[in-house]
Design a protein around this nucleic acid. Structure first.
Lengths: 334, 334
DNA sequence: ATGAAAGCGCTAACAA
DNA sequence: TTGTTAGCGCTTTCAT
């Protein structure tokens, strides 16, 4: 494996000149540059990234910690973040936390500092109580909504607003007994914020808030959605609309309702949240909230890059909230 | 940021002893170890991975190059590979190639050698003609089927066998005009291998092979499946079964047939390939081939680790083929 | 069981 | 415009 020294020797220059050529520094005569490039080609020289990292104190890699990439939502998020990072010449290393608090703290751990230039953490296990654990001295951006006002930058979704809009949409379509399917509601998190939006919409419309309509599940996936929908149908619970806090949950619900012989949207209308690719093709196609993933991912990466590049400790932390649009499809009557 | 030197000073030992403690080497007295651990805790010491990498010539990270992680198939693959890599104490950095030949060659490029200990390449752009480009002197495992007999390890799917079985299943369910939906067929790749299996099954059953039933699309996604299915229906093409070379394509087809008012499975039966999570919940649920992803991912990582750990150049290259099972669901009549 | 010396390959800072 | 010096933080080797 050829080193800079070897190239320097072969080209009859100093290692520093080779380094300057590699890094496109000015102040290198054209003839010299060509001699060097020629030697590099002859020796099939490749920079040793480890050495460069050590010297520079940068790795050119950011970490992305998500519960699981194989999920439509996080998969899409990962795709977008990787693409955005590439535009900033950064690679992305993925850590799967399984939504566990411990693994999320691990990802945050300072030891990663020298491995990643920064970390984008899609928090699903950490809670508000852990906010202070985020006070680390390396760049971190939080994505998701379990921590607010923490000592870090935070890109948030328009959870409450969008959930209110989604529920209002069901009300406009004449639903009167609207269920919500969400995760365990603790303090401030995605489920609780979306639940608040749902409640607001009901209240504004003068609809009663029946606690039996608040359905909580362990995980926000297809399986849980399908199972709970079947249970709701069998239990004789009356409902004519379901707001699901994720599209995966909603597609599961569509499946469960089909199993129970309940026609959608005729008898029950269903709306999700995320606008995952599959939603458009599901039968019936799924109405949902589109939170502008691309903008969120781009913003998260941009924020992280800003922190990476600035040396002084940040004075204020940003909490931008993304836009959203309602996408109306067959599951709420087109 | 504390270094090993700082810890050594604080503990009153040599840097070497600290290193030995960190790396769990034997030959460290218990009392010494504790002194060192104590100093490490006090100084909040973290290893500098870049320095260790430089010294060891290893990074502890492998690369995973896939067309796009946001897709159900590659998302699941990534999940499984990351989990498998973790068991070997390796991190995974993801490169999205967009299925382009050039980006795949990039990922392969030796420059990555010192960045990744090895690379798992899910080839979708490279072809048989590029086989020799795979002759690099660092560990690489190919996943997918565009290159056979190349100078690298290769974990393959049971494409031909499984496609034959899938087509046979349609025949057993009384389909007589079975279409196949696949990608552009060039030389040896996933589509061509699966097409061969399809043809074999038809031939064995004495069914004619109507070229009009071979439908090729650009990308193997939901969108393409839906659009082509609608086109097929509108064109008046007669068919009573469709074998799709991916589940995404198949779910798209289910959607397209629904749009055209064609009932599945009554009038047309549909089977996919991959057994993606969504398949089970789609309406109708999708019959498909399950190629045992977990075993494939585990095998790919194990193979790569073996190459990483062995110093001599490999003598023979492995090409294990995974098992498969047919998963029969509603789209072919349960 | 512990330590001293050396160097992995690169680039920042300065000198020429 | 080019070169010299030094050192990033760690671990391998060899000595004690």
């Amino acid at each position: 494996m050829a080193t800079i020294q070897d190239v320097a020797k072969a080209a009859g220059v100093s290692p520093m000149t080779v380094s300057n050529v590699i890094n496109d520094h000015p102040n290198v005569r054209k003839a010299t540059r060509e001699k060097v490039l020629d030697a590099m080609a002859r020796l099939d020289y490749r920079v040793n990234v480890a050495a460069r990292n050590l010297r520079k104190g940068r790795t050119g890699t950011i970490g992305l910690a998500v519960p699981e990439v194989g999920t439509p939502y996080y998969g899409r998020l990962a795709t977008t973040i990787i693409a955005a990072a590439e535009r900033h010449n950064l690679r992305v290393s993925i850590e799967q936390t399984g939504a566990s608090r411990e693994n999320e703290l691990d990802a945050l751990s300072l030891s990663r500092n020298l491995l990643y230039d920064g970390l984008i953490l899609s928090a699903a296990g950490l809670g508000q109580a852990d906010a202070e654990r985020l006070r680390v001295d390396h760049p971190v951006v939080i994505l998701g909504d379990r921590i607010f006002g923490g000592p870090v930058d935070h890109v948030a979704m328009p959870n409450q607003e969008a959930s209110r809009a989604a529920t209002q949409h069901l009300i406009e379509r004449d639903c009167r007994r609207i269920a919500i399917l969400c995760g365990a509601v603790e303090e401030v998190d995605t489920s609780s914020l979306r639940l608040t939006g749902y409640r607001q919409a009901l209240e504004e419309a003068g609809l009663p808030a029946d606690p039996a309509l608040i359905q909580q599940v362990d995980r926000l996936g297809l399986h849980e959605g399908a199972q709970r929908a079947r249970e709701m149908a069998e239990s004789g619970l009356e409902f004519d609309g379901v707001f699901c806090v994720t599209d995966s949950l909603a597609m599961g619900v569509l499946r469960g309702l089909a199993d129970a012989g309940i026609p959608v949207p005729e008898q029950v209308k269903v709306i999700g949240f995320d606008n995952v690719t599959e939603s458009e093709f599901f039968i019936p196609s799924l109405s949902t909230v589109d939170p502008d993933h691309d903008a969120m991912a781009e913003r998260a990466v941009a924020l992280l890059v800003k922190r990476i590049e600035q040396t002084e400790p940040p004075t204020r932390h940003e909490e931008p909230v993304s836009d959203f649009t309602l996408v109306i499809r067959e599951s709420t009557g087109g």
